[in-house]
Design a protein around this nucleic acid. Structure first.
Length: 426
DNA sequence: AAACTCGACAACCGCACCACG
DNA sequence: TCGTGGTGCGGTTGTCGAGTT
């Protein structure tokens, strides 16, 4: 036996609300409060069902609702919490002041979800789609990149989880008589904006996302360069809808026969990003070197062009690298190990991102995305496979990843169990 | 200029949960 | 304990405007 409907369906208006209806609803609630939603429409003179009134009020008319575009930090929080909580929009909304669950849900479905999908990340699991990219034999390039993505997102997810556990613990403490009556949401927000020094040594892309947007261009230092790397690699990837579909950006990769230059920015400040190379008719791709504030790139005639790129381009390059079809043979042959170069902005000569192939002697054509910092004196051998930029700018080579992962949960539990460890919040 | 497509967002629907008598 | 009303919640649909053909 079904329950009775919340109101008589017959004769009630549906569909978009008119300004007059909004005015009636607001006027009534401001004067009397909403009280029983079921009884409200008749009292307020509305031909609506109470449920419709409630939704209209909670999702649109409420005075404490912030409308408009989501900020970077809000996006960051949504992704973090979604990785942890899934489609629990109300729980996510509870961490985003003045945003409704419906608004967050819509924003996720129309923006963030698509963006992640385009990046090859399953928006449900927050892990790379291994099968979506792969044809037979094309896996290893993608595997390497996917591993990178997986590590990044897993790190973000675990960090969010740690935060939530801390929050829960804090709430328990409050319930046990603490004088701290600050809502947990505020605490969580504070945590969100601060980094834990003891975080697992994997990339926190969300921190990068946030910090990169918060920081204006500054003179280069190694540390700042690292921040900018994050900006280049991930902040752009995640924050720009058109990143991967730049109408002016056409990348050429092994197996293609033309060389296409990436678009050249007119913006000659240091925010630009330089990208790559193509050495045509050779099945090889050359490392662009002598990087100044742009990049040298070879065209069809092997003429070195000094270019400056916009942020979108770098992600086009990264995505193309990550998804490029390596089914055909001899792409990473010869002795040319340097397949892709992505140059972050504000770059000194000491930091580059490189795509490597170190398996040229067999069928395992592993083209990996490697972060190389000359300050670390990484040899090619050390840099093989995969490296990840940590949240603090240091490097985490994939060889150490498993070992690092072993410490993930320990770190999380340490954060939870030791309120003083690495947290300025407590 | 009209028809069509698509994205964004508001709104609806139905189930689940909770409080209360 | 059970029935009922009220509300929360997540999935889905509808509407509208902008862009494209």
């Amino acid at each position: 036996m079904g329950r009775s409907p919340c109101c008589e369906k017959v004769g009630l208006k549906k569909g978009p609300w008119t300004p007059e209806e909004d005015q009636k609803l607001m006027a009534y609630i401001e004067e009397f409060g909403h009280g029983s939603w079921r009884a409200l429409p008749a009292k307020a003179g509305l031909q609506r069902c109470g449920k419709s009134c409630r939704l209209r009020w909670t999702n649109y008319l409420r005075p404490d609702i912030k409308r408009g575009k989501f900020s970077l930090q809000e996006e960051q929080t949504i992704i973090q919490l979604h990785a942890l909580l899934g489609n629990r929009w109300s729980a996510i909304a509870a961490q985003l002041p003045k945003r409704t669950d419906n608004e967050i849900k819509n924003y996720w479905n129309t923006h963030l979800k698509k963006r992640l999908t385009r990046m090859g990340i399953d928006p449900t699991t927050h892990k790379p789609k291994t099968d979506a990219l792969g044809g037979a034999g094309g896996g290893q390039t993608r595997d390497a990149a996917n591993l990178s993505h997986m590590a990044q997102w897993e790190s973000a997810r675990l960090e969010a989880e740690a935060r939530l556990v801390r929050e829960s613990k804090l709430q328990v403490q409050n319930n046990l008589g603490s004088n701290n009556t600050q809502p947990a949401r505020l605490v969580l927000n504070k945590i969100t904006t601060q980094q834990q020094p003891s975080l697992p040594p994997c990339l926190d892309i969300l921190k990068a996302w946030q910090s990169s947007w918060n920081k204006p261009p500054q003179p280069s230092t190694t540390k700042e360069n690292n921040t900018k790397i994050m900006h280049s690699m991930y902040a752009m990837m995640l924050s720009t809808d058109d990143t991967l579909e730049s109408p002016t950006s056409t990348l050429c990769f092994p197996g293609t026969t033309t060389t296409t230059m990436l678009p050249v920015s007119n913006n000659h400040n240091n925010n630009n990003i330089g990208v790559l190379f193509n050495e045509n008719n050779s099945n090889m791709y050359s490392l662009a070197t002598n990087i100044d504030d742009g990049v040298f790139m070879k065209d069809n005639t092997a003429t070195m062009l000094h270019l400056q790129m916009q942020d979108d381009d770098i992600m086009a390059a990264v995505e193309a690298f990550r998804t490029y079809d390596d089914n055909s043979s001899n792409k990473y042959n010869n002795n040319n190990n340097n397949n892709i170069v992505v140059v972050p902005p504000l770059l000194s000569n000491s930091v580059v991102l490189e795509g490597f192939n170190n398996e040229s002697n067999d069928n395992n054509n592993v083209a990996s995305l490697v972060v190389y910092d000359s300050n670390d004196n990484l040899s090619t051998e050390e840099a093989e496979n995969l490296a990840i930029i940590n949240g603090d700018g240091s490097l985490c080579n994939v060889k150490n990843l498993d070992e690092n992962n072993k410490h993930y949960w320990n770190n999380i539990f340490n954060l939870v169990n030791d309120p003083l460890s690495g947290s300025s919040v407590f």
